[in-house]
Design a protein around this nucleic acid. Structure first.
Lengths: 263, 263
DNA sequence: CAACGTTACTTTATGGCGTAAGGAGATGCA
DNA sequence: TGCATCTCCTTACGCCATAAAGTAACGTTG
């Protein structure tokens, strides 16, 4: 597994993302493709086959070209992933009704991000260490910042809070995306998988209940597994757990606000 | 990037992890290696070169063998990763002093996990969808459950809380691990990287300040970058941000406890 | 002790990957 | 009409996991 980050000329990808491309007419055959077309095709491949299935050959095939022909338009695969990332980031809303209040806005924001990552699970594989510096990435940061500033807290605290919410949403999305991928790749549902493993566990560790009593207690009162796997995540039984965790975080933010007011 | 999950005979890996191996003497040459030796070598490779650098060739080379010779001991690379994962999970503490209280214990637990993931960054790439079902994985779950049960909250709420804390710790570790990997791979520090990008950003998006005012506000009062990169993360300036986020979560847990008491 | 079956380990091969290198053919301009 | 420049192709290299088959070492059995 590789986490991609463009390592070509940084100037090139930034010009593409910010729309500073010059398309002066030049000799030679007319371009049959374009960077935009390639980004679209690549996103299509990654959405279906994941980051692991995203190969230059696959993208080329989707466009009726060879893998190598893409290098006429894009310097490296890493740069292409950067462009894909900023492209889909544009799907995120950039405005939340102020009358929702910060609590309602953060909730909607978290749900929108969750759905976004489930629609494009490969985005969870893009390294966050060195940002892409594209317009949509900054727009997303600007939106989140705007919501959080409504709490009246100071920037250093807000950065901590943004980290908590972001890590939580991405983590939840990752877990769900991994579960879906596992189910599709193996053709075995989570429920069937557990049904096949638990007898093995009993056989291999007969003293299980004595060794891990707390782990067993933690499993009490589990909700029913999702009825229809095609139903959107946010309407499924598992979304309850997501909402509960988010509620804890929101309460934490509120407590922080009260502390700031008091202190 | 591929997220590994063993897909060989599940029985085999479980027998190895739970120590149910039979080593009856059989004809043929004496085994020069063992599953344990291979796991150790593989962990060594992954700790240094990451999941991307973990190849059967690399592990074999470390043991003075070819890649193929490993398949005498291990059915697939995926199974090997499963074993590696449960192996290193054994490094996590399984006991926290009750006198620390749930708040102190959760804090220590989070710090231990953070350090663990920074010591073995490749563990962040192991899919959490279908657990390995090894003894150390269950021990870790048991420990976390034990701490959280001190809050007196019911299991469904505790699962939500565990998710929040786990996602937060893993997310923070991932961000830090990605930053370190990027610095090492490119030979450019985060600071130098920003110094080279920001002029480009100004050039390509002169209206930046007008378009993303909230994003800029969010950057105010940034702490100084880490002085010595070799210093342990928890003693660095960035750890402040980690502690702040954790504090918000802990306050959220406390608010949840109060609500439960009241309701 | 010789033969045999089992095992450890090797070499070779298959089909994937990103991408370097070089060549063929199309096109706009001098 | 060249010629420079461009698109797109084929080929090739060095990686990857692992299937297949061969060699040699060893315990057991006749």
């Amino acid at each position: 597994m590789v986490i991609y980050a463009g390592q070509g000329d940084p100037r090139w990808s930034m010009d593409v993302m910010w729309g500073n491309r010059v398309s002066n007419l030049r000799p030679g055959p007319k371009p049959g493709l374009s960077v935009e077309l390639i980004i679209d095709a690549a996103v299509g491949v990654a959405d279906i086959d994941g980051m692991a299935g995203l190969s230059m050959r696959a993208v080329g095939e989707k466009l009726g070209r060879t893998a190598m022909s893409l290098y006429t338009y894009v310097p490296t695969k890493g740069d292409l992933v950067d462009l894909m990332y900023d492209r889909v980031l544009g799907e995120l809303p950039t405005h939340y009704e102020p009358r929702l209040g910060w609590r309602g806005s953060v909730t909607s924001w978290a749900e929108d991000h969750l759905e976004f990552h489930l629609r494009h699970p490969w985005t969870l594989q893009v390294s966050q260490a060195r940002p892409v510096l594209g317009p949509n990435e900054f727009a997303a940061l600007d939106t989140a910042s705007g919501i959080l500033h409504e709490t009246g807290l100071r920037p250093p605290v807000l950065r901590g809070i943004l980290g908590v919410v972001l890590h939580y949403v991405r983590g939840a999305a990752r877990t769900e995306a991994e579960a879906r991928a596992a189910a599709e790749e193996t053709g075995v549902s989570d429920e069937d998988w557990w049904h096949s493993r638990s007898p093995l566990l009993v056989e291999v560790a007969p003293d299980f209940a004595d060794r891990f009593p707390m782990a067993i207690r933690m499993e009490q009162d589990k909700p029913a597994p999702p009825e229809d796997p095609k139903k959107p995540y946010l309407e499924s039984a598992m979304a309850e757990s997501f909402a509960m965790g988010l509620e804890v975080i929101l309460d934490g933010i509120e407590a922080t606000m009260e502390k700031a007011k008091a202190g």
